[in-house]
């Protein structure tokens, strides 16, 4: 992909739906299983990723003409690890209540394939504004996926949402265990693909009628 021809809004939508990190591209599946066992965890992880993804895209795009293509990988790593440490340290000092909630996840972001992938595929080849839009879109897409997965996992596994009990007891404990993460991600991925296929079939049918 060279320079993009999409508008910024198209780029954001692209990240949210048609190239959704989890459900369409199937990258960064590790966090989608590891930290989606409660809605709260999923939410905070999603928010952190939106921020890091956008900032990394912005920075990589900013220095893209300075990066020697041969060593772009270590440089992306520096940018990502730098931002993550930056957020980690600033939050530990200035936002301790929030840090206690999400401090555990912040450092995990360093190893996210999706952030690396967008720097490599998009930001390093595009101007700043489209890169920000792409980062935002990818981040929001990841956020939405985390919310959907963690919503079902917490509801089914613990009978609770955001820590508030809705059903007594643990209805389907396996859903909050790692194995349940695979079930949830797999079933949801299947559902969204089925939805996509159905919509595409409808569109084709409509087009066929028009041409007939």
């Amino acid at each position: 992909m060279a320079h993009t021809h999409k508008t910024n809004w198209e780029l954001i939508k692209n990240g949210m739906f048609s190239e959704n990190t989890i459900f369409k591209m199937a990258i960064s599946l590790c966090p989608s299983i590891a930290v989606t066992n409660s809605l709260k965890n999923g939410f905070f992880m999603g928010v952190s990723v939106i921020f890091v993804q956008t900032m990394v895209n912005l920075t990589v795009s900013l220095i893209r003409n300075f990066i020697n293509p041969k060593i772009r990988i270590p440089i992306f790593m520096m940018v990502i690890a730098g931002y993550v440490s930056l957020i980690d340290m600033s939050m530990a000092a200035f936002a301790r209540p929030v840090y206690k909630q999400i401090g555990l996840y912040i450092q995990l972001i360093v190893a996210f394939a999706s952030i690396f992938a967008r720097a490599e595929v998009f930001a390093v080849k595009n101007k700043i504004i489209p890169s920000i839009a792409d980062g935002l879109g990818m981040g929001i897409g990841f956020f939405l996926a985390m919310i959907v997965i963690s919503f079902f996992r917490e509801l089914l596994g613990k009978g609770a949402l955001w820590g508030f009990p809705i059903v007594q007891g643990n209805p389907l404990l396996i859903m909050v265990l790692p194995a349940g993460g695979f079930f949830a991600v797999g079933l949801l991925m299947g559902f969204f693909n089925w939805l996509d296929a159905r919509m595409a079939a409808k569109r084709e049918a409509a087009a066929a009628i028009e041409t007939a």
């Binding site: 020697n68 060593i71 440089i75 520096m78």
Partner: peptide, 10 residues
């Protein structure tokens, strides 16, 4: 060139 590039950024 590559070395300088990497050193500067790091």
């Amino acid at each position: 060139k590559i070395t300088i590039n990497l050193v500067v950024i790091y």
